[in-house]
Design a protein around this nucleic acid. Structure first.
Length: 467
RNA sequence: GGCCCGUUCGUCUAUCGGUUAGGACACCAGGUUUUCAACCUGGGAAGAGGGGUUCGACUCCCCUACGGGCUGCCA
């Protein structure tokens, strides 16, 4: 018997990867990876009407972008339908399930009638539960689990605590549909058991389901996994996160230019805490992560904090990795790829822009000075600082830069000297320089810009601006 | 409607009966500066409401309010 941790993420492929699903996957991943366990991926595609291969691809893509790698092959739940049916029949043999010949129309009619009578929660009690097989008609049937009618089922949840459900409120869930396909309630249990899942970490929208699933575990004599039902993510207004809040799919976050490491960090802290830890790598998160640290209340998405977290990660990232992810972002956002020379320039510029950007678009904007080619067209604010006097000063500057030693210290002393000669502080000179070098009024340090683009380009831009 | 879960600064959270209720983001003020960002210093800011239990409750129990989830031959 191995006590290795096995977790899984089990999305249904009906759309893109929701940010909440991404966080669920992240928690499962952190928990497994931090304990030397396995993190498995299963696609819950038993609903043939709604499942699409495109959605599956989108989900895998989202997980991959987030950097959540799974162990082994992706399991298709639908592909295991024969195994599910086998278990349903074993339940039949064990007497923990029965054939029910009630039609959908009959059940619907029953519910309507009960509601009309004022029964708020009509629990359908199948007349076939204890019927004599001799009376079975030759008709389609479903297999229902024989759930206990009395007593209670207790879910021992690591996050929510002990949750007690009265069995009387549970009906005999269908485990196998009349067409022989399994329902979710059966399939999850069979798959989790067969895959050796030890910890079920999922959204708390499944909390009530856990009671029914536990009944299936008991019916088969299987070990119940450790439950951990985590609260959902809400929009900034506290309502369930939906389209109208903006981004709900993880690919939208990628397109907005958030680095994956920052995303992971932010999402980890959303609904989970470990003392005062705020900014950390995924490796550190794995060491700290525990189910006990998960909060019980739904958390709201805060884009400001997301940005702040991402800013820390951008500045911490090694240049090579940063450049690589930036290029992936450009591709994902449908922007033109970098040319070889732009890539070279950008990697030289990173050191002076990475501390000032929170997202990739911001990083590109800050590094604009390095990527543009002449003529440098100043924007309105920059144009204002390029008056006649300033242009004259810039012109007088170029000869002195010709022979200057191209270091920050040397440049600084030349420029402060020039400014002094014109009876001004360096601050006065910095504006025109920015305008000439970058065409903007807000840029990285002028010295850094000169260092990055080099002597020839610097002089060319100054001459152009002062012409 | 019924059942289940939740509720600490605006937001994410720490606290696991005894704290001036801590941190982070955001915000405000000041500083630094070569613009922006960053950074530094300081500031305002919270236990939903009401009952208990206890020498003592944010912490335990009950009620109310509010929010969320579930209530399918969906997952």
């Amino acid at each position: 018997m191995s006590d290795q941790v096995v977790t899984r993420f089990a999305p249904s492929p009906t759309g893109y990867l929701h940010i909440g699903g991404g966080r669920t996957a992240l928690f499962n991943w952190l928990f497994a990876r931090g304990r030397g366990g396995k993190f498995l991926l299963r696609i819950e595609d038993t609903d043939r009407e709604r499942s699409t291969p495109e959605a599956t691809a989108a989900i895998l893509k989202g997980l991959t972008w987030l950097g959540l790698d799974w162990d082994g092959e992706v399991v298709s739940q639908f592909a295991r339908k024969d195994r599910h049916a086998e278990v349903a029949h074993q339940m039949l043999d064990r007497g923990t399930a029965y054939k029910c010949f009630s039609t959908a129309a009959e059940i619907e009619a029953f519910r309507e009638a009960e509601k009309a009578r004022g029964v708020s929660y009509p629990v359908f009690l199948s007349p076939w539960r204890d019927a004599d097989p001799a009376t079975y008609p030759d008709a389609p049937y479903v297999i229902r689990m024989k759930a206990p009618r009395a007593g209670q089922t207790v879910i021992r949840d690591t996050v929510q605590g002990d949750v007690t459900i009265q069995n009387a409120t549970l009906d005999d869930m269908i485990v196998l549909r009349s067409d022989g396909t399994p329902t979710y309630m059966l399939a999850v249990v069979v798959d989790d058991h067969d895959m050796g899942v030890t910890h079920v970490i999922r959204g708390d929208d499944h909390l009530n389901n856990a009671a029914r699933q536990q009944i299936v575990y008991d019916a088969m004599g299987w070990t119940v996994p450790v439950w951990a039902h985590i609260p959902l993510i809400h929009g900034p207004d506290g309502k369930k996160l939906s389209k109208r809040h903006g981004a709900t799919g993880v690919e939208e976050y990628q397109a907005m230019g958030y680095p994956a490491a920052g995303m992971r960090n932010y999402l980890t802290r959303l609904g989970w805490a470990h003392g005062d830890a705020e900014i950390f790598s995924s490796e550190e998160a794995m060491k700290m992560f525990s189910l006990e640290g998960i909060g019980r209340a739904p958390a709201r998405l805060d884009f400001k904090k997301l940005e702040n977290t991402c800013g820390h990660h951008i500045s911490m990232m090694p240049d090579a990795a940063l450049l690589q992810e930036l290029e992936a972002f450009l591709a994902a956002a449908g922007q033109p790829a970098l040319t070889d020379s732009q890539r070279g320039l950008l990697s030289r510029a990173l050191y002076c822009v990475k501390d000032r950007a929170k997202t990739f678009p911001e990083l590109v904007e800050k590094a604009r000075f390095a990527l543009i080619s002449r003529p440098v067209v100043p924007d309105e604010a920059a144009a204002k600082s390029l008056d006649a006097v300033s242009r004259g000063i810039l012109k007088s500057l170029t000869p002195r830069l010709q022979n200057a030693s191209w270091t920050k210290d040397a440049l600084e002393s030349i420029l402060t000297d020039v400014a002094a000669e014109h009876g001004m502080g360096f601050g006065k000179l910095a504006g025109p320089l920015r305008a000439a070098l970058a065409g903007r009024s807000a840029t990285p340090s002028v010295f850094d810009m000169m260092l990055v683009i080099g002597r020839d380009e610097t002089i060319a831009r100054l001459e152009e601006a002062s012409a």
